[in-house]
Simulated scan of single mutants.
Amino acid sequence: MVKLGHITLPEFPLLLAPMEDVSDPPFRVVCKANGADLLYTEFISSEGLVGDSAKCRRKLDIFDEERPAGVQIFGGDEGRMAQAAQIVDLTQPDFLDINFGCPVKGIVSQGAGSGVLKDIQLMERLTTACVKATSLPVTVKTRLGWDDDTKNIETVAEMLQDAGIKALTIHGRTRCQMYKGEADWSLIAKVKNNPRIQIPIFGNGDIDSPQKALEYKNRYGIDGIMIGRAAIGYPWIFREIRHFLQTGEELAAPTLAERITVCKQHLDKSLQWRGGHAGIYSMRRHYFTYLKALPGIKEYRNKLVTLTDPDEIKSVLDDILRAYEGFEMEKAPIQLINYHENCPI
Rank of each mutant, 00 (worst) to 15 (best):
K59A: 14
M81I: 08
G75I: 06
A82F: 01
A85I: 00
D77A: 13
C56P: 04
D94S: 12
L90P: 02
L60Y: 09
L60R: 08
Q72F: 10
N99E: 04
N99L: 01
P93L: 14
L90A: 15
I73K: 04
D61L: 12
I87C: 04
D77H: 06
S53G: 15
V50L: 00
M81L: 11
R80S: 02
R67P: 12
K55N: 07
T91C: 10
D61E: 15
V50S: 00
E78T: 13
K105I: 08
T91A: 10
C56I: 01
D89G: 02
D77R: 15
L60E: 07
R58I: 13
D52M: 11
Q72E: 05
G75S: 05
F74R: 06
K105V: 12
S53M: 08
G48K: 04
F63P: 15
T91V: 11
A85S: 14
G101E: 04
Q86S: 09
E47M: 10
G79V: 02
C56E: 09
V88A: 02
D64E: 15
F63I: 09
R57N: 13
D94Q: 10
V50R: 01
L90F: 05
G75C: 01
A82R: 00
F100S: 08
A82Q: 01
Q83K: 15
P93F: 06
I98Q: 14
G75Q: 09
P103K: 12
K55C: 07
A85K: 08
L60D: 09
Q86M: 11
Q72T: 13
G48P: 04
R80A: 11
Q92P: 11
Q86A: 10
F95P: 12
L90I: 03
V88K: 01
D64P: 05
D94F: 10
L90S: 14
M81A: 01
V71C: 05
E78S: 11
G75V: 06
A54D: 14
K105S: 03
G101K: 07
R57F: 10
A84M: 00
E47H: 07
Q92K: 14
R57T: 08
R67Y: 06
G70F: 08
Q83F: 01
